[in-house]
Amino acid sequence: MTGSDSSMIPFMAEIVASTPLSADTSLFRLRLDQGIADYLPGQFFQLSVPAGGEFPVSPASAADGGGELEFCVRRVGQVTSHLHSLGPGGRVGLRGPFGNGFPVAEMAGAQILLLAGGLGIAPLRSLLHYILREPERYASVTLMYGAREPAAMLFRDELVALARQERFRLLLTVDFVRDEPVDGRVCTVGLLPALLRGVKVEPAATWAAICGPPPLYACLVAELASLGFADERIFISLERRMKCGVGHCCHCALGQLLCCSDGPVFRYSAIKGITGAI
């Protein structure tokens, strides 16, 4: 990207827009001071808020050859609260990109099944945008996205608009409904594994990609297995405490693999036997 050592020293960017997506989550659009934002869906950056700190986060956008990129950030800890206090014009730093990202070349030509829970939509939105830039390269793409409740559903209008495309099928679900009415045409009530159970897929011709809160992985993997998915055809994007991004600080090991440098996207077959991986 910029500078000679972008993996260790943050390069600067400016917030050009921050758009609230839910009560606690906003989409931050950043413009790099210099250079082009080049990254693969599923890779991550370390985002610095000066005087606040740094946190790992995957872009929610797909690289488009320009100098801007988007991050979907929930206000959940100290540094993300700092970030949420900044508006357009705010200065932030970035290191990265780190990790492997989704194997987009390998996924071409097949059916793509994206399974997102909650904030896990962010890296899968990056992958979705990447795919929909050249949809003819894929047989089809299906996104199943589960949120806690209607008000917590991120990018709903954008996803519904995208779903007018022929090759993109969208299935939304919420865990429960309180007051808000659910638009029954586009969203069901129920858990994501249940939604998956009711869909016909061709496991041998499909790549599945999962990102969501920790408890979701085991349920979805079990459901995919019962549908006939081979472990090799399931990709999982994992979260861990990643402080450095380059395999040095050793907070993020799964077995002997490091989430930051061997992942954060893992083929399920590679982590299946590792206790505590999912």
């Binding site: 610095s48 000066p50 005087a51 606040g52 700190g53 740094e54 040095h248 600080c249 050793c250 907070h251």
Partner: peptide, 13 residues
Amino acid sequence: YCYDVLEQGGLDG
């Protein structure tokens, strides 16, 4: 060699 990374802001903000 595990390390944590911290940020300390100056009082000038």
